[in-house]
Design a protein around this nucleic acid. Sequence first.
DNA 1: CTAAACTCGTAGCACTCGCTACAGGAGACT
DNA 2: AGTCTCCTGTAGCGAGTGCTACGAGTTTAG
Lengths: 184, 184
Amino acid sequence: MNVRDDQRLRVIEVLAEHLLRTGLSQASLRQLAAAAGVSDRMLLYYFTDKTEVLALAMGRLAVALADRLATALPGDERLSPAALTAKAARVVVDDDYRPFMRLWIESAAAAARGEAPFVDLVRQIGDGFLAWLMARLDPASVADPAGAAAAILAQLDGLALLEVCVGPAPIRGAVEALEAAARG
Amino acid sequence: MNVRDDQRLRVIEVLAEHLLRTGLSQASLRQLAAAAGVSDRMLLYYFTDKTEVLALAMGRLAVALADRLATALPGDERLSPAALTAKAARVVVDDDYRPFMRLWIESAAAAARGEAPFVDLVRQIGDGFLAWLMARLDPASVADPAGAAAAILAQLDGLALLEVCVGPAPIRGAVEALEAAARG
DNA sequence: CTAAACTCGTAGCACTCGCTACAGGAGACT
DNA sequence: AGTCTCCTGTAGCGAGTGCTACGAGTTTAG
């Protein structure tokens, strides 16, 4: 493996962590290059353009998040929509997951304004989560698994979005309300 | 009233409509000035800086949205959380409201990265919607109205966010699932 | 040994960003 | 008439953006 391919792997790893920590506001070419410890010139030598850098780093984060979720909510039990919502909500508002959710919201906004590579990126990741949720829904307890999964994913994304809007306090109340609804 | 105050009113009105139509990506000083039919120089004569322009235009949109919602969902009946969620979800995914929701998501992302004036703005608007929902919840049907309202607002915001991620089709399914849950 | 391919630094391009210095014209007040 | 405040255009500043032209050093292959 040549130097360039080595650097590609190393830089993406570092930048994924950087994006998770600082969000998309610190993601100009020069800022990314500084975070990776290289010059902006070299970043565009390792990668074709900024779009590719972002796409690769975000993709790296997507698999990291999928790994975490797989252990937090293993797919060996099928739940009702309310139970799955409550369980996933508890996970999503955890401190360890907050950077992911914050970045997810920034990505969605970037997609809303048509920025590459976020339009395709959030579509793929969103579809992945829909499938992930659907695989954890008890088929007997829900008539339309796709619709139910979309409603649950919306609930989870909304919790993350609301947290950046009005702060963590109302979110804790919301999670407890969802857990109460799942019990009752 | 002098020319300057006249222009302040007129420009904000035009820019609110511009933001609603184009989102925050077309919101540089020069783009805003062009949309308002004035020079960027004059925009900074009418207002102190870009932050004030955005804050006023967004505030204008907030009251416009509140007006619309007040007629779409008048506050004369108290609903269960599931019923309120289903009714509001149907409204929120309507074509007329989509520009508002898209802008709302972009604002939340701007707040997430600490941009003025969005941090304070989304907090005020978010708190307003929480109160708005709480006033429409049947106190007898819910133990913790604040938590329930936060959960509902998260559900609604999430529908809007998911729409820009994976498109309108799964959202329709989600709304129908929410309506089915409210019936059953 | 020579030439090609790979690696990387310097410098800078053309552009947009928010914002401002300066000057001039129009109308009002003394 | 003279001054003064209000209004507005021109022109540009300094910083930041993504990206590139050019050349030099190093490694590798024939």
